[in-house]
Design a protein around this nucleic acid. Structure first.
Length: 268
DNA sequence: ACCTAAACCTGGGCGC
DNA sequence: TGCGCCCAGGTTTAGG
């Protein structure tokens, strides 16, 4: 559940069920995936949740925090008291004092959870959709500084936070921009269009509670799939007819090691 | 500064 | 059924 809409969906659902609860025990089945000392949060009460780009945050009353990154296949599942979801690939289990629990599953073991003793917000130049700094002007400034392909730049987490392969592809299609164009070649009108497309696509994906694509690894906190995959315009649709009116075909090419899906006729 | 490939791991889908 | 190959929502690191 890697990108911004999926992490935000999980955060909201998690917020509804875990705030106010106390962690009774942390069961670490895969030691490499837990960074820090689990004692930092054991016995501590959750006071809130947050998110920075693709990183989920859980805040505790003692000033500590848990950070979670799902990478490609990570999942959070919540079991109310008495329920035990049979789940494959469970790596870390958080037992709460009321008998409920939170499972961190990850088939590929790429994800991680980190316990931080005294959480402090770190300075960062990265701009992030839905935050105040994600303005057309700031996006234009970021893009103007690089000749790298626009799609690669959108996915660079040091520059723009939260956008991954799905939403970079979808946003560029919606904006009608060729993913291979140098970022600094975009005209002001195009940056404006792209900015609008990113926010519209991400918001719709959040409304859909995320994308469960072909592989269907992403799940909501209760195990349900999201529905944004039903709205994919180009992602994983190579070989199909372009959803625009051009009559062309959706193509796939590799870019920076990732699949880029686009329509050469609609995206200039 | 930029690019690529490989690495971290594992599962699913496809062709044969 | 099985095997080999390709693909995968992310990030980091090594090498050119």
């Amino acid at each position: 559940m890697p990108e911004l809409p999926e992490v935000e969906t999980i955060r909201r659902q998690l917020n509804d069920v875990v705030v106010g609860k106390t962690v009774a025990r942390v069961d670490i089945l895969e030691p490499n995936m837990f960074i820090g000392d689990p004692e930092t949060i054991t016995g501590q009460k959750i006071i809130g949740t947050g998110r920075r780009a693709k990183v989920l945050r859980i805040f505790f009353a003692n000033g500590s925090a848990l950070l979670a990154h799902f990478k490609l296949n990570g999942q959070f599942f919540y079991d109310p008291p008495g329920k035990q979801t049979p789940a494959r690939f469970t790596r870390i289990i958080f037992d709460f004092s009321d008998g409920s629990r939170l499972l961190f599953n990850d088939s590929r073991k790429f994800g991680w959870i980190k316990a931080i003793k005294d959480f402090k917000e770190e300075e960062s130049a990265m701009i992030e959709p839905f935050k105040d700094d994600f303005t057309v002007d700031n996006l234009a400034a970021v893009l103007s500084k690089s000749r790298r392909p626009i799609k690669v730049l959108l996915m660079d987490q040091d520059k723009v936070g939260g956008i991954g392969n799905i939403y970079a592809n979808e946003s560029l299609f919606k904006a009608g921009i060729d993913p291979f164009r140098p970022a600094n070649s975009l005209k002001p009108e195009e940056v404006k269009k792209l900015h609008k497309a990113i926010l519209a696509i991400l918001q719709k994906a959040i409304d859909c509670k995320g994308s469960s694509g072909k592989d269907e690894w992403y799940r909501q906190l209760n195990g349900s799939t999201g529905c944004y995959q039903e709205h994919f315009l180009v992602y994983q649709r190579d070989g199909q007819v372009c959803p625009g009116s051009c009559g062309g075909e959706v193509l796939r090419q590799t870019q920076a090691g990732r699949g880029t899906f686009y329509c050469a006729k609609c995206q200039k």
